[in-house]
């Protein structure tokens, strides 16, 4: 009796609607390549590394690799990485915000905005090694700006303590793609600030500061914070620019990991896996926060 019911239930949906039954497996078949691809080239390699971070060389479980991250070189690498990423993200967000705001509601000629969008699209994709070359030609010891400052103003940039191959040098270089990225992300959010809100606030006697404090920023903050987090993750994972600019003279996590993969500088692959795990956790956290904040901010941007 139960068997009959089961087979009757199984047969029932197929009888009136053969079409859906025939097309359903085909639909699932359509996403098989995607999931196979994502599993093989994205999920498995990452999971394998994360598992490796908790393994001894013989394959047993251990927390020792994580514990051994606590050594001066590695701690300072994480520290400098976080500082550089934070500095370039915060400055990029601030400057990008003013730039996007100027283009969206600064009352500038109409051609400014599409031009800015195009230039931002190019600059945000102009990263990696060529970017490092460009900044060496600009702010390096023989760079144009360095020489102009010396010849025209008698100001010795490097004498004043600046060095392109250092913390601030890297942060300034990263800003070249961080600012445009911020502009691209923020423009739609600024479009969502309705003109009527500003007018309504003005009619009620609000000052500009009050408008920003009580109307604009409460609407914008998820976008602002979210975009800043994305910029942070963007800088944190970058290898090529830093490597071409500073070689291995600046001790940041991606460079340390690169050196580890190339030549096992930590003399322990499993410590390398733990290092990678730390990177995934940091960029993962900031990206998840970004996605969460973006869904919050989209409520206002209809």
């Amino acid at each position: 009796m139960p068997n009959q019911t089961a087979s009757a239930l199984a047969a029932a949906p197929s009888a009136p609607k053969p079409a859906t039954r025939a097309s359903l497996p085909l639909a699932w078949l359509g996403v098989v390549p995607f999931f196979a691809f994502a599993t093989l080239f994205l999920i498995l390699p990452t999971l394998d590394l994360m598992i490796g971070a908790f393994q001894t060389p013989t394959g047993g479980f251990t927390l020792d690799n994580i514990a051994r991250l606590n050594q001066p070189t590695i701690i300072s690498a994480y520290k400098i990485s976080i500082q550089v990423s934070l500095a370039s993200a915060l400055l990029g967000a601030l400057i990008g915000f003013f730039l996007a705001h100027a283009a969206v509601s600064g009352g500038l000629p109409a051609w400014i905005r599409p031009t800015l969008t195009t230039f931002s699209g190019v600059a945000s994709n102009f990263a990696g090694i060529p970017l490092a070359f460009a900044f060496l030609a600009t702010l390096g010891r023989a760079g144009l700006v360095t020489i102009l400052l010396r010849d025209l103003f008698g100001f010795n940039l490097y004498g004043a303590g600046f060095n392109l191959l250092s913390f601030w040098g890297l942060a300034i270089t990263y800003l070249y793609f961080q600012i445009p990225l911020m502009v691209l992300i923020l423009m739609p959010a600024l479009d969502g600030l309705k003109k009527e809100w500003g007018e309504a606030a003005a009619i009620l006697g609000a000052t500009k500061a009050q408008y920003w404090r009580h109307v604009a920023l409460p609407v914008l903050w998820p976008s602002l914070l979210g975009a800043t987090l994305l910029l942070f993750a963007n800088a944190f994972g970058a290898v090529a620019t830093a490597y071409a600019l500073t070689g291995s003279s600046l001790n940041i996590v991606p460079i340390l990991l690169y050196a580890q993969i190339r030549g096992d500088v930590l003399h322990d692959p499993h410590l390398g896996y733990a290092l990678a795990l730390g990177m995934i956790l940091i960029t993962g956290f900031s990206n998840v926060a970004y996605i969460w904040l973006r869904t919050r901010s989209e409520r206002w941007l209809k």
Partner: peptide, 19 residues
């Protein structure tokens, strides 16, 4: 899943490939 490559740095992905 399509957003994951923005979360996982390229250097981590390639390290995973090598392992």
């Amino acid at each position: 899943v399509t957003l994951l490559p923005l979360v996982i740095p390229a250097i981590v992905i390639v390290f995973g490939y090598l392992r």
